[in-house]
Design a protein around this nucleic acid. Structure first.
Lengths: 215, 215
DNA sequence: GTCAAATATATTGTATACAATAATTGAATG
DNA sequence: CATTCAATTATTGTATACAATATATTTGAC
């Protein structure tokens, strides 16, 4: 089918899953969705395949597709993997960073500082996302970059919650400084470990993540 | 459609792509495939979606799906990412490795040694694959493990070629020993860097990889 | 002979009918 | 009243007909 339409539908469904319209284990009923979207089952089925491929839903033969929300263990694993991907990007970026890249990163970091002063978590979130994406890009490996972007996207909702925790913003900001310095120096190991620690869910953050799941 | 059938067809097509039956840029004709597999277009289309999702093919709206073979740059990037994923697995495995895991790893390594003595690249390939998979598993992170397995699978064909290079087997074997020792000691950094270097395409290996693409 | 427009053909995308299988309900039996 | 089996219903999977769009071919003008 027309991929664009399928992706559009898939995207809407994705939003529905993330926003909680659909809960873990819910069956995504083909005929209901077909009437809702005013299309036949065919495009719906293709959209569902997209969700399944991205891991947001699970398909059981002859039974249907069911939404699959990540549980605590899944999230821990995903954050741990994200930390390692970020570390990898940092490692590579340390030796491949251009002056322009450093400028972009510095700018993104300034935006973070602004948001911190404004005590605006949403603004900080956006600036922070950019900061990290600049690093993915600076790694000079589009495959790795894509992997990082995909996982970042999946963790979006949960990271957002974390930044609302008191004191987290300023701590995050300090860590950014360390990261930026390491990249300026071209110190691969330091950049990698600074990013790993920055992203990792450990100590206080662990309990906060768990608490955020109870809603 | 029945996912199992779709995946079966997708798998066959995948083989076709890897074995060179389909070349880069070839259009995967729905009706031809439908008659070949003796099914209607519907299951074929779902199988094609699977290929697209895995990145082995590209879908252009209203035009069709075309096989997308990785070029030199793609491969370099994928191997570099693989190296980082393996390093990540090694880092985590270093602190989480069980006695049983060490036994499995040791056994897998012994099988590698056997294959080396037999000068049998195919046998070495299989044993080597197991060796690495034990490490993915020992990382204790099923999400990361899956990422590693997926990429390992994509690179399968190219890694195979590399092992046929003279002297590569014994070098690989030595590197395994270093990796095994680091994991025994629980030295995360050493395990990570040993694995990174083991997998990375650098020096001689670069030219060999490039040469293998010319067929 | 070349270029452009129009027509024909091929191919993808969508809807729908039918088939196969799973879930549910209800009746019969102990 | 519980349990099991049969029949009904619902739902997924497949085939196919039709619609929309892109590609190829032909025809005509210059």
């Amino acid at each position: 089918m027309d991929v664009r339409r399928a992706n559009q539908i898939a995207n809407t469904l994705e939003q529905g899953v993330l926003s909680g319209d659909y809960r873990d284990g819910d069956r995504l009923d083909e005929v209901k969705l077909a009437t809702q979207f005013e299309v036949s089952r065919t495009p719906i089925r293709e959209a569902l395949q997209v969700l399944v491929a991205s891991g947001m839903a699970e398909q059981i033969p002859r039974r249907g597709v069911f939404v699959r929300q990540p549980g605590p263990v899944d999230l821990i694993e995903m954050f741990e993997t994200m930390a390692e991907l970020e570390a990898a990007c940092g490692r590579l970026a340390a030796s491949r960073m251009t002056d322009q890249g450093l400028d972009e990163l510095s700018t993104a970091n300034d935006h973070c500082a602004q948001a911190l002063r404004a005590e605006n978590p949403d603004q900080y979130y956006a600036a922070n996302e950019t900061f990290h994406r600049v690093i993915y890009s600076a790694a000079g490996n589009s495959f790795l970059q894509n992997q990082a972007l995909q996982l970042q996207n999946k963790l979006k909702a949960y990271r957002r919650i974390q930044l609302r925790v008191r004191g987290r913003l300023s701590q995050s900001m300090e860590e950014h400084t360390t990261i930026l310095e390491a990249l300026r120096k071209g110190d691969a190991d330091q950049a990698a470990s600074a990013l790993r620690n920055h992203v990792a869910v450990q100590g206080e953050k662990f309990g906060q993540l768990m608490a955020s799941l109870k809603r």
